[in-house]
């Protein structure tokens, strides 16, 4: 067990190191220099550009730059090129904004998908199964931004509530209950949108897992014992079908930092995705690289976590 953890951690660290190199190279080898952020801006005289280059070590060779950058990152001193603010602080602020979206979206995804998938699998081929199947394909196929606009039109014309942004501007005077309702309305649409793809994919996956397990011999054994159908489906079949999903808990982790660029920019939600998008537009490399690094850490931590969880729930795997 310990040797597995040790090996796994070392492997993940090596991968992380390589990811840091690759992402650094992608950014720096691409044409265009960050010092030319805005050549038309009259404030950017050659001297200022030169000073800028010096301040951010851009005059040094690439490997030295790499060293400086990750030293700063690991000691938490990275600053944005755009406004000289601490990158980690910026990310933290935006992270707090994205967090409610993430939590509500994940809750919706995981609470809705399972009942839908399981019911579709048990009533295989029936009208419920077929309609949820088609609906799932529809939701997977619909472009997120298009769906967003349909929902906006629907909600705005139907309920006459504003939904863009995190809250309605200038609502200071309103009562607390009003404020809360306003926040909920603003939160609801983007999180529902963020969850649609997840619900569609996850419920299909639950269904196929459940179908696979329902055709196993041990389910037949359970029936032959004379167990009631609830016990056959929800104890014997479900317990086995759930095994792969335990590993997916670990894979939620990267979603913490992802945020959806498209949804956040449609709803003017000042979250992580928007920040990354703006950083890309401004070629603010420290922000881009830091977001990338943190998300790689989360991906690796997530896979590590799911391996561990799998070890715990599947009695067949013993180290």
């Amino acid at each position: 067990m310990l040797s597995f953890i040790g090996r796994s951690v070392i492997q993940k660290l090596v991968t992380l190191f390589l990811v840091s190199i690759v992402s650094f190279l992608i950014i720096h080898i691409a044409p265009g220099e960050p010092s030319q952020v805005n050549p038309l801006n009259p404030k950017f005289t050659p001297e200022i550009v030169e000073r800028f280059r010096k301040a951010f070590h851009l005059d040094k060779p690439l490997h030295v730059q790499y060293f400086y950058f990750y030293k700063d990152l690991l000691t938490g001193k990275t600053t944005s090129w755009k406004d000289n603010q601490s990158v980690l602080k910026k990310i933290w602020e935006r992270f707090l904004n994205s967090l409610p979206l993430f939590i509500v979206g994940t809750l919706i995804t995981w609470t809705i998908s399972f009942p839908i998938g399981i019911r579709a699998a048990i009533a295989r081929g029936g009208i419920y199964d077929r309609s949820t199947t088609f609906l799932a394909y529809l939701l997977i196929s619909i472009p997120g931004f298009f769906f967003a606009y349909i929902l906006i039109i629907f909600v705005v014309t139907r309920f006459h509530v504003p939904v863009i942004g995190m809250e309605t501007f200038g609502l200071r005077e309103a009562t607390t209950i009003h404020m809360i309702m306003d926040r909920i309305w603003h939160l609801l649409l983007p999180s529902v949108l963020g969850a649609t793809g997840g619900v569609a994919i996850l419920s299909r996956y639950v269904r196929s897992q459940m179908l696979e397990v329902e055709s196993q011999d041990y389910v037949r054994t359970a029936k032959a014992k004379g167990l009631p159908p609830e016990q056959v489906h929800y104890k014997h079949a479900l317990r086995n079908a759930l095994l792969p999903f335990v590993t997916m808990f670990g894979l939620i982790l990267p979603g913490l930092i992802g945020g959806s660029v498209i949804i956040e920019s449609i709803f003017s939600w000042p979250g992580m995705g928007r920040m990354a998008y703006e950083a890309i537009l401004a070629r603010d490399y420290p922000v881009i690289l830091t977001v990338n690094f943190i998300s790689a850490v989360l991906v690796l931590a997530g896979t590590f976590l799911s391996d561990l969880l799998y070890l715990m729930v599947d009695p067949r795997i013993r180290l």
Binding site: T15, V19, P254, I257, G258, V261, A276, N292, S295, A296
Partner: peptide, 8 residues
Amino acid sequence: LCFPSFFL
């Protein structure tokens, strides 16, 4: 797989 694909 470590890179968030749309972001990359």
